[in-house]
Design a protein around this nucleic acid. Sequence first.
DNA 1: TAGGCCATCTGGTCCT
DNA 2: AGGACCAGATGGCCTA
Length: 220
Amino acid sequence: MCTAMETVYSDMDSSSCDYFTHDDEDSCSSMHASSPSSSIRKPASPASDSQGPCATDMGQKKRRRGRARNEATVHVVKKNRRVKANDRERNRMHSLNDALETLRTVLPAFPDDSKLTKIETLRFAHNYIWALSETIRIADIEQRQNKSRADASLLLPSPCVIDAPSPGSDACSWSSSASSSSSSSSSPSYCTSSPSSPAGCFQTDVLQYSYHNFVPGMSY
DNA sequence: TAGGCCATCTGGTCCT
DNA sequence: AGGACCAGATGGCCTA
């Protein structure tokens, strides 16, 4: 980690970077202090400030030296601003990665699969949402058909048939169970439904499909 | 060793 | 003015 950073910084010192020129000896150390482990950076101490090119002798060339000091100050201000921006950007990317990691925990985990990459996570999440939507849609159609069949034949309604879909109802059982089970563990959520249900068969198929294929009509 | 993935830095742009 | 967001560049690590 540190070696990589050192390489980057050393390379940048030798490049045409405006903020880290060759006379900027402390740029590397200050950047190291802004590593992800510590956001506390060592401020420019008065001692190091006094070691500047114009700190000791403010004699005859006072005006000229004053201007040089101004330039140095502007340089330091720019550098500090850059360091702060880098720190914010790092934190922003970390929060983005945290969100991605949270998304991974919600997605069903398949055995012998290594960690999904970022792009795989996003694509699988898209497909997974599509699969869940399809499952709910199919289950809803199925439920309506059962109800109309029961009404037509004047038979007693099946115990599991409900009149109106509601949160937690059978029509939504898989999606809710999937979300609840996968939120607490990484076990495959497609095993939580009743295997005898056609929707259950569909959900497994559609989940496998969502994992291994692209959603129809989806462009990347 | 090439290629994929990732973390980080950087400068530009937009927004508040 | 400063922060958020973005895309490009760069270099390290890992794997086939």
